[in-house]
Design a protein around this nucleic acid. Structure first.
Length: 151
DNA sequence: GCCAACGTTGGC
DNA sequence: GCCAACGTTGGC
C-alpha cells in the first residue's frame, strides 16, 4: 500500500467538508505530475494525509483513503467550471482524478511548523523549498510519524 | 499583500 | 527547441 499527502485549501474544501460528504472526487488538479500520481499510482485503499494549505494554520488535518481509482475529472468538460479545459474531450480526456473517502479528523492539526521541527520528516517534499506540488507520495515511516503525532 | 519558486504558454 | 513573459502556489 502507498501513502499520500494531498493539499486542499480549507476555504475551498476542508476535512470537515469531506467528513460531511463522506466521499469526494478530487477534481480540479491541473498539474501533470499530480495527475500522473492519481492516474497511475494511487490504489484502492491507499491512505491519504489531508493537508490544509493557504490558511491560518497550514498542516495535516486528518486522514482519507482512496475509495475509487483513476477516472476522468468531469470538470474538464464543463464550460461553466473554473477547471474547464477546452482541449480535453470525452474520447481523450486530459485530466484524471481519484475519489477519496473520509477516515478521520485529527483532534488537532499537525502543523507545518511541527512537521518541519520533527526528525525523520525533513525529506518530505512538503518542507522542501519551492516545492508546491499538491499531491505527494509519503513513505510508510513518514506516515507513521505523523499519525503518531496526532495521538 | 509580498515574493520566491516553479510550471505553462507562445512567439520566434 | 529556446526562452521571456506570464500565471499560480503557498508560506509568511
Amino acid at each position: 500500500m502507498n501513502h499520500w499527502l494531498m493539499k486542499s485549501e480549507p476555504d475551498m474544501f476542508s476535512i470537515d467538508d469531506l467528513k460531511k460528504k463522506k466521499t469526494s472526487g478530487w477534481d480540479g488538479v491541473r498539474n501533470y505530475q499530480a495527475r500522473n500520481y492519481m492516474r497511475d499510482d494511487m490504489k484502492l485503499g491507499d491512505l491519504v494525509l489531508f493537508y490544509h494549505s493557504s490558511c491560518e494554520v497550514p498542516g495535516v488535518a486528518g486522514l482519507a483513503k482512496v475509495s475509487k481509482t483513476s477516472h476522468p475529472d468531469p470538470s474538464q468538460f464543463d464550460a461553466k467550471s473554473d477547471y474547464y479545459d477546452p482541449k480535453a474531450t470525452k474520447e481523450t480526456p486530459r485530466w484524471f482524478m481519484v475519489e477519496v473517502e473520509f477516515v478521520k479528523k485529527f483532534d488537532e492539526v499537525i502543523t507545518l511548523t511541527s512537521i518541519k521541527a520533527t526528525k525523520g520528516l525533513d525529506k518530505m517534499p512538503l518542507v522542501q523549498k519551492g516545492s508546491r506540488l499538491s499531491i505527494n507520495p509519503v513513505t510508510e515511516h513518514e506516515f507513521k510519524i505523523i499519525t503518531d503525532m496526532a495521538q
